[in-house]
């Protein structure tokens, strides 16, 4: 099922990304040394409990950190171009044109005082994708149809839309300028399960059809498994496991991945025991030494408490753990 993209240059390459927020209690290390690649046409999932830094990464890729956010190290290479040193004005042209976003709270991502269609037109005009207003509107109508919205709805205001409709509109908006990368940050979390399911499939379909690359963020590992080729598991601001979705699901290497999977009913239908993870994720303002997962890990040893684990590489996947769960199954080489 996963597409192999090893032969082509990745469209997005993130190298050693770290960022922190300045808070009253001191700096809060929200993301630490995160590196990953996104192949052309590929979709990558980022999962982890709420507060582990997923949204921070997404915002950081768009260079949209809040005022108190600081990018402390790293490179964001989009088609080989590093976005980190760009000025705000230069960055503006990459936003939406190259990389677009489906927001976590789609409910609020639409400006209440403008017509929905107008808000998409605005993006199209800002990037000169269509030169005439009529052309732009034609394009919006096409996008609306693509995400399953009646083009007539362009003339409506956001408050007249249901949650699902708004989410579709936000997806249409993200597609407006043919971006090469789409970042979807929990796009379906606020919706009810049925709408969520339909939307997921459509999103996946659109991504395939337009052969865009996508980063899909969710706290729900089951959802991520459904739509992505590769999956990255985050814990306390760190990427702790990365690999092809099927492999990771078949045999998680990191104890946290295993715990996450067991807290959700399996997508393959077989019912795991719903064993919930004890304890809480660490305070990022004052993270524990060594592996941040050690206070909650059943396999933790002295080593784990002292030093952050080195990466264990297995073919196209890796994990950061002193005692990876390799023995659980024959991990794919």
């Amino acid at each position: 099922m996963p597409m192999t993209t090893a032969d082509t240059e990745p469209v997005l390459k993130v190298v050693d990304l770290s960022l922190s927020y300045l808070t009253r209690q001191g700096p809060l290390q929200a993301v630490q040394s995160v590196s990953f690649e996104l192949g052309r046409g590929q979709s990558l999932g980022l999962v982890g409990e709420s507060g582990c830094g997923k949204t921070s990464i997404a915002n950081c890729l768009m260079r949209l950190l809040p005022d108190n956010g600081r990018l402390t190290s790293g490179q964001i290479l989009l088609d080989g171009q590093d976005l980190v040193p760009l000025s705000e004005e230069e960055m503006r042209h990459f936003r939406w044109g190259q990389m677009a976003m489906v927001f976590q709270a789609a409910m609020n991502a639409l400006d209440p005082v403008y017509r929905v269609g107008q808000q998409v037109v605005e993006a199209i005009e800002a990037h000169g994708v269509e030169v005439t207003t009529a052309g732009a509107r034609e394009r919006v109508a096409r996008l609306f149809r693509m995400v399953g919205l009646d083009p007539q709805l362009m003339e409506r205001y956001p408050h007249e839309f249901s949650g699902g409709m708004r989410q579709r509109a936000v997806i249409a908006m993200a597609l407006a300028c043919d971006p090469s990368v789409i970042i979807a940050d929990e796009p379906t979390t606020a919706l009810d399960v049925i709408v969520q399911d339909r939307l997921l499939r459509e999103l996946k379909g659109v991504q395939r059809e337009l052969s865009m690359s996508m980063i899909y963020i969710s706290h729900d590992i089951g959802v991520v498994a459904e739509v992505t080729d590769r999956i990255g598991v985050m814990y306390a601001g760190r990427l702790v496991e990365l690999g092809d979705t099927a492999d990771v699901f078949g045999a998680p290497m990191h104890p946290y991945t295993a715990a996450l999977m067991s807290s959700f009913p399996s997508i393959s239908g077989e019912k795991h025991e719903l064993e919930t993870l004890p304890g809480e994720p660490p305070n990022l303002a004052n993270p524990p030494a060594g592996c941040p997962f050690h206070p909650r890990c059943a396999y933790a040893t002295e080593e784990c408490r002292e030093e952050f684990p080195a990466q264990v590489q297995r073919g196209s996947r890796w994990t950061a753990c002193w005692h990876p769960l390799t023995d659980m199954a024959g991990v794919g080489q």
């Binding site: 009253r24 709420s50 507060g51 809480e280 994720p281 305070n283």
Partner: peptide
């Protein structure tokens, strides 16, 4: 898009 850290006490005041 700013969430309150789940593991911290609510800020002063």
């Amino acid at each position: 898009m700013i969430e309150r850290p789940p593991n911290q006490p609510p800020p002063a005041g």
